[in-house]
Design a protein around this nucleic acid. Structure first.
Length: 436
DNA sequence: TCTGGGGTCCTAGGACCC
DNA sequence: TCTGGGGTCCTAGGACCC
C-alpha cells in the first residue's frame, strides 16, 4: 500500500503560513521573471486563473477581484518543505520525497496493524503536518503509486472526504477511476490526452480497460503499458528510496530564458558561460564529478517559426570533472556545433550528467598514467577557494576569465528582465501586493 | 511589449562490432 | 571482396512530471 501526501497549493500555503490575512483571498505565486502563475489559491482557481498562464494575461482578472500576486521566495518554500518532509518520513518505514510538495510513503508492513484504520492514520498525518507547519495537505492511499496519485486527486476534489481517500477495495477503486478525467491521470499529458479522446477514451476507468498492447503502441511503449497496469492495481513502480528520503540526482541543469531574442554568438556564449559556472558550483557542492556535458539553445515557440525549437550537443568527458575551466572549454566547443547565425535564440542552458563521487575517478585502463589525476589537485584547490569566496561574498564575486562579463559594459541583451518587478522581495515588509 | 526552471525516462536511429 | 543478423553503445529528441 502506498500513500501520497500532497501539500495543497504549496507556494500559496507557504505565504499564508506567515501571513494569515491572505486567507480567503485570491492569491497567486509567480515564476522567475514574474513570467507565469505557478501556484494558486482555491479562490484564484475559482476566478478562472489557469495554472502556468503568463502573468500579463492573468493580471487584469486578478486586479479586478482584489487578488494578490507574489514573486517566488524559494528560501522560504524550501525550508517549509523540508519541515513537512521530516514530519512525514518519521511516520512510515520508507519515504520518497517526490517533489517540493509531495511525498510517497510506503505502508507495506504497517498495513498488518493499520489495515482497518488507514484512513484514520492519514487523518492524523494531516493534523500533525498542519499543527507543525500550518500547511494543509491531502492524502491518497492505494495499492500502486499511480492509484495513490489518483486517490489524492479525488480527496482534493471531494470535500466530504476531509482530505483523505483510501481505495481499500475493488469497488472503491472502480468508483474513483470512473470520476477522474483521463487527462488528470499521472503520466497523461496534453499529447496523449488528445490521442485518447480521439479514440473515445475520456475517463481513467476506460484507460484502465484498454488492451496492454494498445497502450504499448500508443502511449510511449513500456511507459504506457506500465501506466495501465498500475491503474489496474498491479504495482510496477517502486518507491525511489534513499536514506534521507531524497533521491540521488542523475543530472543537473542550469538554464534561463533571455530578456529578449539574441542572435550574436558571443552574447549567447556569455549567458551560457554564467550557467556553466553555476552548474559547476552545484556539482562541487554535491561532491560529484560529471562525465557528460550537454548544452542547448532554444528559439521561440510562440513566434510562428516551425519546430524544432531546440538544438543540443553533448560531449563525453574522458575523465569525470568538476572543474569550471574544463567545463567552460567543452561547452564553448559544443555551442559552436549548434549555433546558427540568424537564429533568434530565447534561451540557453547546460546539463551535466554521468556523475561519480569526486576523487573516486576510474583510471583509464589504456592510459593508466596517474599523472593527470595528480595535476587535478591544485585545480581542485582553486575551485574550492573560488566557491568559498563566492559563498561568503555573494555569487559572481570571483569568476574565471573565460566566463567574465565586463561589469562596465552595457547591460547584455541576454540578461533576465526585471522591469516588471518591484525593487526588492527578500524581506517580509517588502512583499509585493496588488490592490484593486 | 510581456510565455519558468529543473527534473525523469524512453525510443529511434546511426555507428560499430562480431 | 562478398555480406546477414544480431548485439551494444551513443546521441538527439520527445513526452511527461512538479
Amino acid at each position: 500500500m502506498f500513500a501520497l501526501v500532497d501539500c495543497n497549493n504549496f507556494y500559496v500555503s507557504c505565504e499564508r503560513a506567515f501571513n494569515p490575512s491572505l486567507e480567503g483571498k485570491p492569491v497567486v505565486v509567480l515564476s522567475n521573471n514574474d513570467g507565469c502563475v505557478v501556484s494558486r489559491s482555491n479562490e484564484a482557481k475559482a476566478l478562472g486563473v489557469q495554472m502556468g498562464v503568463p502573468y500579463f494575461q492573468a493580471r487584469p482578472l486578478l486586479e479586478r477581484h482584489g487578488g494578490l500576486a507574489f514573486s517566488s521566495n524559494y528560501a522560504l518554500y524550501g525550508d517549509l518543505s523540508s519541515r513537512v518532509m521530516r514530519l512525514l518520513a518519521a511516520e512510515a518505514p520508507a519515504a520518497e520525497v517526490y517533489s517540493v510538495d509531495e511525498c510517497f510513503l510506503d505502508l507495506h508492513g504497517m498495513t498488518r496493524w493499520l489495515e482497518p484504520d488507514l484512513a484514520a492514520f492519514a487523518g492524523e498525518l494531516r493534523a500533525k503536518v498542519k499543527r507543525g507547519t500550518h500547511i494543509p495537505t491531502c492524502v491518497g492511499i492505494a495499492p500502486t503509486k499511480t492509484l495513490a496519485k489518483l486517490a489524492n486527486r479525488v480527496a482534493k476534489k471531494t470535500p466530504a472526504l476531509h482530505g483523505v481517500c483510501w481505495l481499500q477495495d475493488a469497488e472503491k477503486r472502480a468508483w474513483a477511476l470512473a470520476q477522474v478525467p483521463v487527462e488528470d491521470v499521472w503520466g497523461i499529458g496534453r499529447q496523449y490526452a488528445h490521442k485518447l479522446h480521439q479514440h473515445g477514451i475520456t475517463t481513467a476507468a476506460q484507460l484502465a480497460a484498454v488492451p496492454l498492447g494498445w497502450a504499448r503502441q500508443h502511449l510511449g511503449g513500456v511507459v504506457g503499458q506500465r501506466l495501465v497496469r498500475e491503474l489496474q492495481g498491479f504495482p510496477c513502480l517502486a518507491l525511489g528510496e534513499s536514506e534521507d528520503g531524497t533521491r540521488q540526482r542523475q543530472s543537473l541543469c542550469v538554464s534561463r530564458t533571455f530578456g529578449g531574442a539574441v542572435t550574436d554568438f558571443e552574447a549567447v556564449w556569455e549567458a551560457l558561460a554564467t550557467h556553466v559556472t553555476r552548474a559547476a558550483e552545484k556539482l562541487r557542492a554535491q561532491g560529484s564529478a560529471a562525465h557528460l556535458l550537454t548544452v542547448f539553445v532554444e528559439t521561440s515557440r510562440y513566434d510562428g517559426t516551425p519546430p524544432p525549437h531546440s538544438r543540443s550537443a553533448g560531449v563525453t568527458l574522458p575523465a569525470g570533472t568538476a572543474n569550471t575551466g574544463m567545463l567552460l572549454a567543452q561547452a564553448r566547443a559544443a555551442l559552436r556545433r549548434i549555433y546558427g547565425p540568424g537564429a533568434r535564440y530565447v534561451k540557453t542552458g547546460v546539463v551535466l550528467g554521468g556523475f561519480e563521487p569526486e576523487g573516486q575517478r576510474q583510471l583509464d585502463l589504456f592510459h593508466p598514467d596517474p599523472e593527470p589525476l595528480v595535476r587535478e589537485e591544485p585545480k581542485a584547490a582553486v575551485m574550492a577557494a573560488l566557491d568559498g569566496l563566492n559563498h561568503r561574498f555573494g555569487r559572481g564575486t570571483v569568476t574565471l576569465a573565460a566566463a567574465l562579463v565586463p561589469k562596465q559594459a552595457p547591460k547584455p541583451t541576454w540578461a533576465t528582465r526585471f522591469e516588471q518587478r518591484t525593487p526588492a522581495y527578500t524581506g517580509w515588509d517588502e512583499l509585493w501586493t496588488i490592490s484593486a
